[in-house]
Design a protein around this nucleic acid. Structure first.
Ligand SMILES: [Mn+2]
Ligand SMILES: [Mn+2]
Ligand SMILES: [Zn+2]
Ligand SMILES: [Zn+2]
Lengths: 140, 140
DNA sequence: AGATCCTATGCAACTCAGTTGCAAAGTTTA
DNA sequence: TAAACTTTGCAACTGAGTTGCATAGGATCT
């Protein structure tokens, strides 16, 4: 735990999510990570809590723009806490990186998705951009 | 059918896949499409053929670089025939577009994935880039 | 041709992440 | 306190994808 209970409570309040035990635990865990995590990852750590409760918590967090989800192609959706000031709009989108060796999925916060030229009349609303390869620790 | 049986047979031969009935039918269907299709799409058209046979056919096609797969976030993998000369290498990667209105997934062949700046020592090997929004026909 | 071998196919069963219905527990409101 | 609403846990279900296995279909050898 790298955050005080009160911090987590505040964050939830601010985003309009009622701070319950499950929610505080899930958010606390998410804030601890340097990589994006799956429902299963959370489940195995917060083993006292039910899968569906964690699932619904994640859905709720996503709706309230507290976290964003990443489809990294592994078949398990990953979740990561949104950056300060993120509103989950086009300008907040960033690339994600999946390491095929250590199997970690990273948010590349410093790599925003620049405007992409599209065919005439196509309109971009959202995007899921995943680069796969080797992370710095696995690239020897 | 927009291709003669012999054409399809030739393509399979050239890519090192033995041309069987299932394979020729699947390839024929794939060549007909202007959008990427799912296993289910193929199944519902080639209803005489078994799902697992089509599934294994797609896997085989992918291994032999006849088609490439796209994870567009819908939960159903889409497949599209590779362009002439495609070797499924980095330089062959291109953006994909998923229309949230008509639910079609397109290959943006004219939009190759340019080299993306990555954090120090990260190495890109592959990528799945999906832009979501409205296609020209749905964007009114 | 007939026997043998290898591959492709169809069928059924299974996996597994995600999702939902429902009742019990907990919280807020009147 | 009682009623109303929300959250949680449990169990059952969904659906795409995947696999084992027996049969069918071709190719190859004698
Ligand atoms: Mn991210
Ligand atoms: Mn494509
Ligand atoms: Zn790694
Ligand atoms: Zn459309």
């Amino acid at each position: 735990m790298n955050k005080q209970t009160t911090d987590v409570e505040e964050i939830l309040q601010k985003k309009g999510v009622k701070p319950t035990a499950v929610r505080m635990n899930v958010l606390n865990f998410l804030l601890d990570q340097e990589k994006a995590v799956s429902l299963k990852d959370i489940e195995s750590v917060l083993s006292r809590m039910d899968r569906s409760s964690i699932f619904r918590t994640l859905k709720s967090f996503e709706e309230h723009k507290l976290i964003h989800s990443i489809d990294d192609g592994t078949g398990m959706t990953k979740y990561a806490v949104c950056a300060e000031g993120c509103n989950c709009e086009l300008e907040d989108l960033h690339y994600h990186f999946y390491c095929i060796s250590c199997e970690k999925t990273f948010c590349l916060m410093d790599h925003p998705i620049s405007t992409i030229e599209l065919p005439k009349n196509f309109k971009m609303i959202h995007a899921n951009m995943v680069i796969k390869g080797l992370c710095d620790k696995c690239n020897k």
